[in-house]
Design a protein around this nucleic acid. Structure first.
Length: 592
RNA sequence: GCGCCCUUAGCUCAGUUGGAUAGAGCAGCGGACUUCUAAUCCGCAGGUCGGUGGUUCGAAUCCACCAGGGCGCGCCA
């Protein structure tokens, strides 16, 4: 027996199938599925066992189905088995077997649905990894929520999960940040220059013009006075660059961590790209690839179609990613001899493997989609026979709407809506839940009004309301009975028999299976939809109590029935909390 | 030009990894409050799953081609 009633029944089916079809190859029985039925007329569960075994057994699916029906009917939890359609076996469980999930849920509480299926395999989930060059914005937010929920989901599914953030504190963006922070410093020092005049002396021009760097400039001036400039005019970068850069990085990272904290996202590991580079890790990684014969000096074909203005053929160090399924080989060195970002990123992934990751999952923005195949190629090259695997989850763009109109500007950041703006307006729970109401690889419209609306349209509200209703009933019931989980788990449940009660129990029993399937697919949004459906089942049952007094949860004259119903309500609340915990959303006790 | 992602009801989206008659919400129409909060619920109506072929017992799902939308395509990270 496990928490997962589907896994239990599947075991029974596979065992029966082994009797019906001796010598069945293992890969065939691995394909046997036991799934919930869509239609209650088909019983509680259906299995495809007869159909997947048909070819290997050289028997008609219907024949095997008939034999399975014989073998399974009336055994264990199965009350009835029927062959149907092209070879399905529909299973109807004893009602008491389904009801038995309720005490199981009450005993486990939020841990219900925890699985050992992951086998403790070490998974590294890397997400956000925003450049520390400014505040977090809406684009980062989706990746943060999806990554965090996926990491929680994998933990629940029995994987050993590390949550990791890579600080991209190297490269040209950081140089640009230093110059932008230096501009704010000059302003704090009372420079006579205009922004345009300053921009002319900045290599590549002034970037990052948002107001968020003003505190950095002020902090630099407070700490160092006018000493980093010459009469409030730009001084030799040798005098200030490292200091300004590091101050800006430190303050930006602190601000990002504050934002993440407000979002409820916490990492186990922060890795620094610059530290990794300074240890020479990238050169070591390139040397290793060279040993594998995967490095050569060569010239890439120009991209087809419209050429970049400054295109010229150029020989550079290339990685044979085409050997691992990529379209073209990829450069590891720029023309000035420094490493490309790709080279550093290979090295970073090698580092994650070295630290013990068996599965790496990267959460990226959709604009990095073109990068997936080369990084997977690099991982395959590095992993050799160890079988370390890289999965990439791409998060598509989020458009923020308010009153149906796109929202773009942020006062603080200038060009984008910040995470903090959104959190202030919508709140953490609604942001997190709403971000999980779409598949990651589908574009999302985030409507601020819809996210805070208190109607069924808003799944955040609808699920929270269901939980609050559960708690409300439990508070009321506590006046006349012991409502602790331990006490409720002892309640006789035979009186739970109404179709809407049984439908709710079936939904609850499907939760462990949902956790495993969503974790396998790396799709945390499924949790949001499951909870929405579960809330619907509960609201329906609640309202049926208005029409039919026998379905009301608290019935003063009938303590036995009441105890059973309250146990069901408590189990419902526990599963909702279990799901919300994966999503990082706080369950509410009452609506106000 | 090439690669990746997407296309499902009027609108916004699910679809349990290839299963049975494709499901929700909104919008539309009709109902349910003396009650554990009606912020909810029930019913009706709404579909050529972008298109055409293919794979097989079986396709919204897999493959090929086509159309439309998004993202990307050597010294950005």
């Amino acid at each position: 027996m496990t928490d997962n009633i589907f896994a239990d029944i599947r075991e029974a089916v596979v065992t029966a199938l082994a009797h019906v079809v001796p010598d069945l190859p293992a890969d065939i029985s691995a394909r046997v599925e036991v799934t919930p039925t869509k239609d209650a007329a088909h019983g509680d569960m259906a299995t495809n066992a007869a159909m997947v075994a048909s070819k290997a057994a050289r028997r008609k699916p219907q024949d095997i189905a008939q034999a399975l029906v014989q073998a399974l009917s009336g055994t264990g939890m199965i009350e009835k088995a029927e062959a149907a359609g092209p070879g399905f076996v529909n299973l109807t469980l004893h009602a008491h077997a389904l009801r038995a999930q309720i005490p199981a849920i009450l005993q486990r509480g939020e841990a219900y649905g925890d699985s050992t299926g992951g086998g403790g395999v070490r998974v590294n989930v890397e997400y956000v990894s925003a450049n520390p060059t400014g505040p977090m914005h809406i684009g980062h937010c989706r990746g943060a929520v999806v990554g965090d929920a996926l990491a929680n989901l994998l933990s629940k599914a029995g994987f050993s999960v590390t949550k990791e953030y890579l600080i991209n504190d190297a490269g040209g963006q950081v140089t640009a940040l230093a110059w932008a922070a230096y501009w704010r410093y000059l302003q704090a020092a009372g420079t006579p220059l205009t922004e345009a005049e300053f921009s002319e002396i900045v290599p590549g021009g002034l970037q990052y013009r948002g107001e968020y760097l003003i505190p950095v400039g002020e902090a630099l001036f407070a700490a160092h006075g006018p000493s980093l400039a010459e009469n409030a005019k730009p001084a030799d970068p040798a005098l200030w660059f490292v200091l300004v850069r590091d101050t800006a990085l430190t303050m930006m990272l602190a601000s990002i961590r504050e934002d993440l904290d407000l979002l409820g996202v916490h990492f186990d590991v922060f890795s620094s790209e610059r530290e990794l580079m300074e240890t020479g890790a990238t050169d070591a990684t390139i040397a290793r690839l060279e040993q594998l014969g995967l490095i050569y000096e060569g010239t890439l074909e120009p991209p087809k179609g419209k050429l970049p203005d400054d295109w010229e053929a150029r020989e550079q160090m290339l990685f044979r990613s085409t050997q691992y399924g990529d379209d073209v080989d990829r450069p590891l060195r720029k023309s000035d001899g420094s490493n490309t970002y790709f080279a550093n990123d290979i090295s970073y992934h090698a580092d994650k493997i070295k630290r013990g990751a068996q599965i790496m999952i990267d959460i990226w923005g959709a604009d990095h989609g073109g990068y997936v195949s080369r990084m997977k190629a690099a991982t395959r090259a590095l992993a050799g026979n160890d079988g370390v695997q890289l999965d990439v989850v791409l998060c598509q763009i989020v458009k923020v709407l308010k009153g149906g109109e796109p929202v773009r500007m942020s006062k603080r950041a200038g060009t984008f809506i910040t995470l903090r703006d959104l959190l202030e307006e919508v709140g953490r729970d609604a942001v997190r839940f709403t971000m999980l109401t779409r598949k990651a690889d589908a574009q999302m419209d985030f409507d601020i009004d819809a996210a805070i609306a208190q109607t069924r349209e808003n799944p955040v509200f609808y699920v929270q309301y269901a939980h609050a209703r559960c708690r409300s009933v439990l508070r009321a019931a506590a006046a006349q009975m012991d409502t602790t989980p331990q006490a409720l788990a002892q309640a006789p449940l035979d009186t739970l028999a109404d179709p809407s009660e049984m439908a709710l129990i079936r939904r609850l029993a499907a939760w462990p299976r949902m956790v495993e399937a969503a974790a396998l697919a790396r799709e945390p949004h499924r949790i949001a939809f499951f909870l929405y459906d579960l809330a619907g089942d509960f609201h329906m049952l609640w309202n049926r109590g208005r029409e039919d007094a026998a379905l009301r949860f608290i019935q003063a004259e009938r303590p036995v029935e009441t105890a059973a119903k309250i146990a069901l309500v408590a189990a419902t609340a526990a599963v909702i909390r279990s799901g919300l915990a994966v999503m990082g959303v706080t369950p509410v006790e009452e609506m106000r």
